[in-house]
Amino acid sequence: MASQGTKRSYEQMETDGERQNATEIRASVGKMIGGIGRFYIQMCTELKLSDYEGRLIQNSLTIERMVLSAFDERRNKYLEEHPSAGKDPKKTGGPIYRRVNGKWMRELILYDKEEIRRIWRQANNGDDATAGLTHMMIWHSNLNDATYQRTRALVRTGMDPRMCSLMQGSTLPRRSGAAGAAVKGVGTMVMELVRMIKRGINDRNFWRGENGRKTRIAYERMCNILKGKFQTAAQKAMMDQVRESRNPGNAEFEDLTFLARSALILRGSVAHKSCLPACVYGPAVASGYDFEREGYSLVGIDPFRLLQNSQVYSLIRPNENPAHKSQLVWMACHSAAFEDLRVLSFIKGTKVLPRGKLSTRGVQIASNENMETMESSTLELRSRYWAIRTRSGGNTNQQRASAGQISIQPTFSVQRNLPFDRTTIMAAFNGNTEGRTSDMRTEIIRMMESARPEDVSFQGRGVFELSDEKAASPIVPSFDMSNEGSYFFGDNAEEYDN
């Protein structure tokens, strides 16, 4: 783990906690998980779902989305002020799938948001429990990260689609708070800032007046979040320049895209947490497990152990491969979309394939898809080993990566060399080191050039047997250095459309 220093740990961010010791953190995270579980059980009762239907990941996603929508204050306010045809701002819903006479049927349900809020609060001892809501947002974000390569979004903001390893959390809503900021990748933060800068260039009043003052505060806050992700002084200094700019424009845009590229080699610290679907927490609570009393951590053995003992089902389209669908969801559960496939294969105990080789589309089923041909199958979400999630980018030494994705962002704290394609990355730096950030740029390029592919990161860190909950005997895996390590390699994943 990167030293926490003055930073709060993510469990504290996750639970809005002030400084807590490890036991208190485990208890408050457990409380959050228990609340999600209780809410899910109650919703299944309301909807009269069978046990099997309640364990269907598509039903879980609909129920999670309903509660997130019920608590989305800004959108609710907007919907009330701008009524649109056929949208009731006070209601929320989605597809629920039921097994009827041996076939899967889709039923569109509609609930009062007020009623959903009441059920959620009741499951969370009367609190709004925003930490639990954020947790579900991060699960949705991790699922998107594993399912889609955001080529269009990258290109629109002047970045290269091969930089997708920097895009963790790119679909997280803005209201996801400190826990959300911690899991956002460098590219995601750059993209958010670039969008602001572009608006400022096109709209003279963007930075002016009372609204402009708020915009400015948001801009500086985002700059500080991004600065905190960088691990070298030169990158941090460049972020200070971007933040202090009187009138952010093209120079800042250039600096930010430069920094994003540099992060492929001088990786930023991005938190990883295993956020599971509500249909995993519900049955665990129903079986009598007391998360608050037992304590829970999002970055240790607990999620692995929970998945070892969970039964989750998914709808499967006619030509999809259930094992591939399982891999997709497994990666999402562990926030591992940008991790090295060699490491993932070792931990999972079966070969993890790149996205383009998977015969599976996303987990969600569109409303126009034919239910007649839908089957369902068990998702295999178990693992051979477990490993500690990392909050750091690993040290800054790398190795060759593949054509589709030119770097990785480690999820697990496991000893290995970190793949990246130096030639491709360095070719993108057209040696432009003039301007006010020239000395920093020169320094950053120097550090990137001296990074050695064969150097090892996370020295001495290994994986653990599932029986080793105290992480007492690390097993340090050895990897084939020459092997392909990137998930979005030469990829044809669908595009994420909101």
Score class of each variant (00 low, 15 high):
G268I: 13
E339K: 13
G126R: 12
W139I: 04
L108S: 15
D255V: 10
E107T: 10
D72T: 02
F39C: 14
S345Q: 02
E320Q: 12
K273R: 11
L49W: 09
G126C: 07
P248D: 06
N142H: 14
E192W: 13
R121T: 06
L256V: 14
C164D: 00
P248K: 04
N142A: 06
E64T: 08
P248G: 07
R355Y: 04
L193R: 08
H135D: 06
L306H: 02
N205G: 13
D160A: 14
L306R: 12
W120C: 12
V29Q: 08
D480R: 00
E494R: 04
R156Q: 10
F488M: 07
S482I: 12
K357D: 00
I197M: 09
S170H: 06
V29P: 12
G460D: 01
R436F: 02
Y111S: 08
R117E: 00
V363S: 12
L307R: 03
S165Y: 14
D468L: 07
R204M: 06
A493Q: 07
N370M: 03
S407G: 10
P277I: 08
H324N: 12
F429M: 12
E443R: 00
A401H: 10
K325T: 08
E18L: 05
C279I: 01
K227T: 08
T350A: 15
T257H: 08
G300Q: 02
P277W: 10
N319M: 12
D128G: 05
N247I: 04
D302H: 14
E11F: 09
G187P: 04
G288H: 05
D203A: 09
W120K: 06
E24F: 14
S377A: 10
D255L: 07
K31G: 03
M189W: 04
M426H: 01
T171W: 03
D480C: 05
G177Q: 10
I301E: 01
T171Y: 14
K184V: 11
E252T: 10
F429W: 03
C333P: 00
I217L: 11
D88F: 03
A271P: 01
T378P: 01
K214C: 07
N205Q: 01
M374F: 12
V280G: 01
L266E: 10
M448S: 02
R74I: 08
S310E: 02
V155S: 07
W139E: 04
A278N: 05
M105K: 12
E11I: 09
G169H: 14
L49D: 01
A472V: 07
F420D: 11
G282C: 09
S377I: 13
E320G: 06
V270F: 11
Y289H: 12
K351T: 13
Q241R: 08
R446K: 13
M222Q: 15
K7C: 00
I406W: 00
G177P: 00
I109H: 15
A70L: 01
R117A: 09
S84M: 11
E73C: 02
A284C: 00
L56A: 12
M167H: 04
R441D: 05
M448A: 10
Q241L: 08
D421E: 14
M196P: 03
S478P: 11
R416S: 06
N430E: 14
E495G: 09
N144F: 07
A428D: 00
H140G: 13
R26T: 07
M374N: 05
S345Y: 07
E465N: 01
K198A: 03
M105W: 06
A366M: 07
R152I: 07
E73P: 00
A263N: 11
G187M: 11
S274F: 07
V183D: 09
W386M: 11
K351F: 02
R391Q: 04
D72K: 06
P161Y: 01
M196H: 07
S438Q: 15
L108T: 07
A336Y: 01
L143E: 11
A234E: 08
K31R: 15
G282S: 15
Y296K: 12
A427F: 03
Q415V: 09
M371H: 01
E252D: 15
I388S: 11
D468F: 06
R261A: 04
M191W: 05
I444Y: 08
C333V: 12
K90G: 14
L49T: 01
F253I: 12
V343D: 02
Q327N: 03
Q20N: 04
N202R: 07
G435P: 03
D290S: 08
R361I: 09
N101V: 11
T151R: 08
V67Q: 09
V190W: 02
T62D: 04
A251W: 06
S457D: 04
A129I: 05
G185K: 02
C44L: 12
R293F: 08
G282A: 15
F71N: 10
L143W: 13
E454A: 08
G169E: 06
R204V: 02
R436M: 08
G435C: 07
I406F: 04
F458R: 00
I445F: 00
V285E: 14
V194P: 00
